[in-house]
Amino acid sequence: MHSIKHPLNQRPHSSYRGRFAPSPSGLLHFGSLVAAVASFLQAKSNAGNWLVRIEDIDKPREMPGSDKAILNTLEAYGMHWDEPVLYQSEQAVLYRDVLNYLQASQQSYCCRCTRAQIKKSGGIYLGTCKFLHLDNFDTAIRLLNKFPHNEFIDGLQGQVHFDHALAQEDFIIHRRDGLFAYQLAVVVDDIYQGITEVVRGCDLLEPTSRQLSLFKTLNRQAPAYVHIPLAVTDEGYKLSKQNAAPAIDDQNPQPGLIQALDFLGQAPPPELQFESVDSIIVWAIKHWQLRNVPQKTEIHL
Rank of each mutant, 00 (worst) to 15 (best):
L261W: 04
G194V: 05
V93C: 11
N243D: 14
I173H: 00
I173D: 00
I57M: 08
A244Y: 12
P229T: 10
I172R: 03
E298H: 14
G26A: 06
D58C: 11
E197C: 06
A35R: 03
A21S: 04
E62R: 01
I191R: 05
R112T: 13
T196K: 00
S213Q: 00
L290N: 03
Y109W: 08
A21H: 00
H80A: 12
P246T: 09
F152D: 06
L102P: 00
I228S: 04
F152I: 07
I280R: 02
H13C: 13
H227E: 01
H287V: 08
D262W: 10
L166C: 08
G48A: 05
K59P: 08
S3R: 13
S45T: 03
V85W: 05
E83W: 01
H164W: 05
S276T: 09
L99E: 07
M1K: 14
F131Y: 12
S15I: 10
E90W: 06
G122L: 01
P223Y: 03
I4Q: 13
A76V: 12
D234F: 12
Q273S: 14
D56Q: 07
W283N: 11
K146T: 05
Y101S: 04
G155Q: 11
D135E: 14
L156K: 01
D190A: 04
L257T: 13
L33K: 10
E169R: 02
M63C: 12
S105R: 04
P229N: 10
F180D: 11
D203H: 07
M79V: 09
S213G: 02
D135I: 13
K241L: 08
L257R: 07
I258L: 15
V186P: 04
V232K: 14
F30S: 08
Y192R: 11
R220C: 15
Q251H: 14
W81K: 15
R61I: 09
V198L: 05
V232R: 14
L41C: 08
P60H: 03
I4C: 12
Q168W: 04
Q91D: 05
D163G: 07
A165C: 08
G194H: 06
K119P: 00
C202P: 06
A284M: 14
I248A: 06
A104D: 14
T208K: 06
A43L: 09
D138S: 13
L33P: 10
N252H: 13
Q251M: 12
A35V: 09
L156E: 03
K119Y: 03
Q168Y: 04
W81D: 15
V34M: 14
G18F: 06
T208D: 05
V52Y: 01
H300C: 14
P294M: 02
K59S: 13
D262E: 15
H287L: 06
T208A: 10
L74R: 02
I258H: 11
W81T: 15
P270Y: 07
Y87K: 14
D97N: 15
I118F: 00
S25M: 08
L86M: 15
G123F: 13
Q259M: 14
Q259C: 13
S240F: 11
N46C: 06
P148W: 02
G194N: 05
T217F: 06
H174K: 11
G265P: 11
L272N: 09
T114Q: 09
S14A: 09
I285W: 01
R96L: 15
D170E: 05
